[in-house]
Computed example of a mutant assay.
Amino acid sequence: MRSFTDARTPDTVDELWLLQHPPVFTQGLAGRAEHLLAPGDIPVVQVDRGGQVTYHGPGQWVVYLLLDLRRRHLGVRALVDLIEQSIVATLGSFGIQSAPDPKAPGVYVNGQKVASLGLRVRRGCSYHGLALNVDMDLEPFTRINPCGYAGLEVTSMRTLLGDSCPDMQLVSENLLQELGNRLALQ
């Protein structure tokens, strides 16, 4: 992402990268060691995004938003709002009522975090992005203070919907469509 961002020109097309990570804790620029309670065998990687510590793993969609914010006339707060709205709409399409929290970026269902955000803006361009918990093992979140909040509960679409949880592919298609619509991407 850094290399892509550093090599961008004013004509570089914006991109969304969709992926799942192997189990990893990522600690942002503001990350403090006391938020890593018991990482055990899961690696901890320092990253250059905002925020504290989070977990990424199979069953979680991560979308990296590689956008030229200047060209889009989009500020960081507006980008965060756009991402959160896209996640809320995606979850809503599967019957999950969710909302952002103005005090803590991300999307929540009844006080439990279902999606995290962590961005970096460099040379007027964003990278890093969002993580949506779809059908993943949530146990690793108990080994950290998610996003620097002691006792913050984390949930997933599978936990909320049980057997009616959609498959990963359907969730990814919906999420990318919501993001693409709001960003006017093709």
Score class of each variant (00 low, 15 high):
residue 154 V to F: 06
residue 14 D to S: 10
residue 141 F to P: 08
residue 97 Q to E: 15
residue 108 Y to E: 03
residue 118 G to Q: 05
residue 18 L to C: 14
residue 21 H to E: 08
residue 166 P to V: 11
residue 128 H to V: 11
residue 139 E to N: 13
residue 172 S to V: 04
residue 30 A to G: 11
residue 52 Q to I: 09
residue 2 R to F: 07
residue 29 L to I: 14
residue 149 Y to Q: 14
residue 90 T to E: 00
residue 71 R to V: 08
residue 61 W to R: 10
residue 24 V to I: 12
residue 9 T to C: 01
residue 32 R to K: 12
residue 26 T to S: 12
residue 173 E to Y: 11
residue 70 R to N: 14
residue 72 R to Y: 04
residue 70 R to D: 14
residue 31 G to F: 04
residue 176 L to S: 09
residue 94 F to I: 01
residue 58 P to H: 13
residue 90 T to S: 11
residue 132 L to Y: 01
residue 136 M to Q: 13
residue 100 P to A: 09
residue 124 G to M: 06
residue 87 I to M: 12
residue 183 L to G: 07
residue 131 A to N: 02
residue 50 G to D: 05
residue 118 G to C: 05
residue 161 L to D: 00
residue 103 K to Y: 09
residue 103 K to H: 13
residue 130 L to V: 04
residue 99 A to W: 08
residue 160 L to I: 10
residue 100 P to Y: 02
residue 86 S to L: 06
residue 107 V to N: 00
residue 53 V to R: 01
residue 162 G to F: 02
residue 48 D to K: 07
residue 61 W to Q: 08
residue 78 A to D: 15
residue 185 L to V: 10
residue 28 G to P: 00
residue 97 Q to Y: 08
residue 7 A to S: 14
residue 36 L to Q: 06
residue 81 D to Y: 12
residue 10 P to R: 11
residue 84 E to N: 07
residue 124 G to D: 03
residue 48 D to H: 10
residue 145 N to V: 02
residue 138 L to K: 01
residue 135 D to C: 14
residue 20 Q to C: 11
residue 27 Q to K: 13
residue 177 Q to G: 11
